[in-house]
């Protein structure tokens, strides 16, 4: 699902694979991927976990916009056409450049070893979180310098699981 929002004059391009039944999935905001899960209480209240940290949201929807309270702060979220000229918000914290899990997880499989050459987007590690498996892919092409984990290890966001010596310019983006 692809969505385009405008909040406080900033554009947000979103593609989400969050499954409404398991309430877990990936969400990409302006090119940065996050792991997300949520709980819902009544028709308007949510507890959302984004990369392992929780926030509370209250969402009131209107035909072309929504009023969202995030931890008590109100934001007007407008649904916009993708051509919207609004400058894109770019978050300071993202994990695009590093191979790190997006939420606390368990390492299930390691697909590459030290010295291997990888392409941007190539699967490197499979982790499991909240009973679902996620594949962590190479953020850019290069040579695997070091693998910092093992199968069965508990890992957290921020842990660099695989270090890659970069050879390709630019990042990789899941389409």
């Amino acid at each position: 699902m692809k969505l385009y929002f405008q909040i406080q004059g900033m554009g947000y391009e979103i593609s989400s694979s969050i499954d409404p039944n398991s309430r877990v999935g990936e969400i990409e905001v302006n090119g940065v991927r996050y792991l997300a899960s949520f709980l819902q209480r009544g028709p308007k209240e949510y507890v959302i976990e984004l990369n392992g940290s929780r926030f509370r949201a209250f969402v009131e929807r209107f035909p072309d916009k929504a009023m969202v309270l995030v931890n008590g702060y109100p934001y007007e979220v407008e649904s916009k056409a993708p051509s919207s000229k609004a400058p894109k918000y770019s978050p300071q914290v993202g994990y695009k450049e590093e191979l790190t899990p997006l939420m606390p997880s368990l390492v299930v499989k390691i697909l590459k070893k030290e010295g291997d050459l990888v392409k941007g987007g190539e699967p490197l590690i499979v982790v499991s979180a909240m009973k679902m498996e996620y594949t962590l892919k190479a953020p850019y092409g290069g040579r695997v310098k070091k693998v910092n984990t093992r199968v069965g290890a508990k890992v957290n966001p921020g842990d660099i699981l695989v270090e890659i010596e970069r050879t390709e310019e630019g990042g990789w983006k899941e389409s």
Binding site: F5, Y12, I48, V59, Y75
Partner: peptide, 15 residues
């Protein structure tokens, strides 16, 4: 401003 990201995620989840 930084909570705008969370607002966008919440709006997505609500949708």
């Amino acid at each position: 401003k930084r909570l705008g990201l969370m607002a966008a995620v919440a709006a997505t989840v609500a949708s």
